[in-house]
Design a protein around this nucleic acid. Structure first.
Lengths: 173, 173
DNA sequence: TGGAGCATGTAATGAGTTACATGATTGG
DNA sequence: CCAATCATGTAACTCATTACATGCTCCA
């Protein structure tokens, strides 16, 4: 039984590579596009994972173009690893909310600063919500499948919830 | 202008230490109790941060008891660092949802496995919600301040939202 | 044609998790 | 007083972020 486990980020890359070979840089863009804010990947991560996966034979690097720009291609081993991941148990979900940490020590903040803090957060989340809503209508108009909209719907729900909670926070003061 | 910035985890420890000296192990417990699931800290983190802060003079280590068990105490420098953190800008909030990543590749999953996945998640989040609700009623009965309830309220909102979203997911299939 | 700005990759650092080691405690 | 269990700390590892380096492109 081969130990071909991959972490979630690597798996995401394998999934994206299933659509055809791509370079690291392209994968960063594809991930951002396809996975959005709920599973971010940075360039450094991508290159690290690609290199590691190449070592393990899950992908193969093509010939280097200009600046070491080389396309990676998924191997059958890689496809197997992706499939295994796809059927593996989900890891626990972590939600780290800086504002909650701050509020835990709210008694050490004067009321004015606290109000300012809440107002800032409200602006941030309202903007995100607006952005998601916009993307949603664009997607619906563009004929996206419901399945692809799920991410956006999650985002909308989440941001709405945060905003409502902020109301509560303000009510308590 | 001294560069006494601390990260959020270190700041949390400073905040907790403000209540009096404590050992690493005690701080782990206090953090879990006081910050809950929305800012987790592990033992390793705590000891690392304490050591680093001692190096920087933000805390001082007391005499070692049994197994190197030593209480840490916050210094005035540490108090200043905490205060600076308290008034600093909030970092961005990250929400990484493994289920969303999985669903992004849902077209590679057969319907049965997908349904199972969703059912599992539903169970997990329902249980968490139940747990938060229980804590909430206990807290209210125990006369906790509204402020301290905010974390719990966030949790309740969040879990409720996730469960509703799971309904949507199921509807799409 | 040169330099401003973008594309692409890498290195250094920081944060978080898992696995481990071992000293205390306590019920039988 | 021995074994099981809990308490406490440490080390090794994986993952993520920030800062950096440098090659390309394209327009003035």
């Amino acid at each position: 039984m081969p130990e071909h486990e991959v972490n979630a980020t690597a798996a995401a890359l394998l999934g994206l590579l299933d659509g055809g070979p791509a370079t690291g840089y392209a994968l960063v863009g594809a991930a951002q596009e396809f996975l959005g804010d709920f599973w971010t990947v940075t360039r450094s991560q991508v290159y690290r994972e690609l290199a590691a996966m190449a070592d393990r034979g899950l992908v193969t690097a093509g010939a280097a173009g200009p600046r070491d720009r080389r396309p990676y291609e998924v191997t059958s081993l890689g496809r197997a690893a992706f499939d295994a991941w796809l059927h593996s148990d989900l890891g626990p979900e972590v939600v780290r909310v800086p504002l909650l940490l701050r509020l835990a020590f709210a008694d050490r903040l004067d009321g004015e600063r606290l109000a300012e803090l809440v107002a800032d957060q409200r602006a941030v989340h309202a903007e995100r919500l607006r952005c998601y809503r916009e993307l949603e209508t664009a997607a619906v108009a563009g004929g996206t499948t419901d399945r692809q909209l799920l991410t956006l719907r999650f985002g909308i729900r989440y941001e709405t919830g945060v905003l409502e909670w902020l109301d509560e926070v303000e009510a308590v003061r």
